[in-house]
Design a protein around this nucleic acid. Sequence first.
DNA 1: CCTCAATCTGTAACCGATTACACATTTAGT
DNA 2: ACTAAATGTGTAATCGGTTACAGATTGAGG
Lengths: 321, 321
Amino acid sequence: MVTIKDVAEYAGVSVATVSRALNNSGYVGKQSRIKVEEAIKTLGYYPNEVARSLYQKSSKMIGLLLPDISNPYFPLVAKGVEDYAQQNGYMIILGNVEDNIEKEDMYVKFFSQYNISGVLSAATGKKSQNYQVPFVLLDRALEEEDYSIATDDHLGGELAAKAIIESKGKQVVVMAGPKNIAGANDRLSGALGVLNSKGLSYQIFETHSYQVDKAEETAVQLFESTSHFDSVIASNDVYALAVMKEAIKRGYRIPEDIQIIGYDDMLFSRLMYPGLTTIAQPAYELGFQGAKMLVDLIEKNSSEHKKVKLKPKLIMRDSLR
Amino acid sequence: MVTIKDVAEYAGVSVATVSRALNNSGYVGKQSRIKVEEAIKTLGYYPNEVARSLYQKSSKMIGLLLPDISNPYFPLVAKGVEDYAQQNGYMIILGNVEDNIEKEDMYVKFFSQYNISGVLSAATGKKSQNYQVPFVLLDRALEEEDYSIATDDHLGGELAAKAIIESKGKQVVVMAGPKNIAGANDRLSGALGVLNSKGLSYQIFETHSYQVDKAEETAVQLFESTSHFDSVIASNDVYALAVMKEAIKRGYRIPEDIQIIGYDDMLFSRLMYPGLTTIAQPAYELGFQGAKMLVDLIEKNSSEHKKVKLKPKLIMRDSLR
DNA sequence: CCTCAATCTGTAACCGATTACACATTTAGT
DNA sequence: ACTAAATGTGTAATCGGTTACAGATTGAGG
């Protein structure tokens, strides 16, 4: 490994001068700068971030906490984060926490062991207590003082309910996501507000997680534990898909007998048949903006906005009448 | 931040003794050990990995290079990797390289700046030249001497072709994945071998990437650039879906007019209608085993197996007659 | 009781960077 | 030409750990 010492020797200057040249800090003579640059080039030197990080007590790494990478929504978020991070010289460390507080705590501890410079979390939203680095919540902000980027879920819920009403839904089932997730509640209240104002009858069906592997099971329960309905506002696209499939299996036609609207707009929602009408969440944008906010917080100790709400959007396809 | 020095002071011993107690290396007296343990507990100390890593020239981080996180296959692999890594105290650093050599090189450089202890790569397969850490290739091994875990793609191709034959396909289109990806070629040769041995007529349709956003476009091209066919062996499930959708849009019935078999078995393949018959790749298992091989290489400098081939499996659903 | 090995423990060097500080050399201003 | 400020550079401390080495203590064997 080529170290700063090797460069210094080769260039005939001290390590301090090399470091100053490298970081454009302090004064560096013209001659020295040239010699250092040559030495760096011929030796193929690049600095060891671990050493730098030890002294600075901060590294160019950010931690990304995700509730479930196998849920196709989050990889898109991750991609947004990754793109912004990479453009700005940050690495991302991945933590898949599965709505498991212990795993989350473990990761947060790992992160601080590695002098991570900031955390992006789409997990519980419980901003880890005594944790001092910049922290941006993705999608699941709880308290007023948090920095966060989220989709305007209340609006999303309204959009979904309006779409159902426009297409003449009469007996609606609203799937409510896990109560401990703020966004799920907003979605529910948005939808319910619209439904109430139009005086439509509806039933609420609660789901207790967003875990993908529960989807089929949940769809079966939906049909067995609710009375007749002609419209479903699903808690996400995966669930919408599972419900659609179960509906077809039970002999219903879509959208004639049962119409369904999803939430998220995953890539496959577009590719399936019938195409799923859904509320698009700007997942990539969420990750990208979140990373931007975090990097601003890290580097300038401030961010233009504190709470950003991105607008969801209705994507009309074929699962509504 | 609580440092080893604080612990030493509190316990009334030297930092060397604390370090030895921590790592169970060298001799540590009974009394000292107890005092150190108490100090650690009351101060809530945990070691800084950056400092450790600087001296050891190796950290408990592994790099994971993925070609495209938004392709739903890879998050599953990532989850397998993450689970094994986490169980063994490793962190994973994510690199989304998008089949872009420059990005890959950039990440490899980043990795070495952070004293990463090993790399798992599902990217180009071009094991980065002068890179000295343990390296395990996921899915895309090229050369004989590499360590790798892959799915037996040749078998996968055979399975797909056999399934098509069983369900009376006559005019088959075989979608060939990118030529520079070893697995894609194996799949193709496996399928072609079976097709040839049965004397079936087929056309080959080449696709140039696995990027998700190309899928719809590619499906259109497929219909426009090939002559009549009744069966499609798709290069993956996303493409299969896109082709199915395009087929239905053009008035074909599935599986009556055109039957389709996919590759991967993504979670939504099960949830869609008609259910996609496909060749299941053990994505999670691939990641998990890959991580295991890498950790063995890191810690014991050897691994039980050098090249592991996992078996793909036919999943019968409704897109074949 | 003596000797040698085994057990403990602390001091200090080291890993590869950054930077405070001191000192030397220019340059500028009068 | 003389002083003060600006510029350039190296030495050494520092970040928080690990470990080689040396010295001290204990125990076993003869």
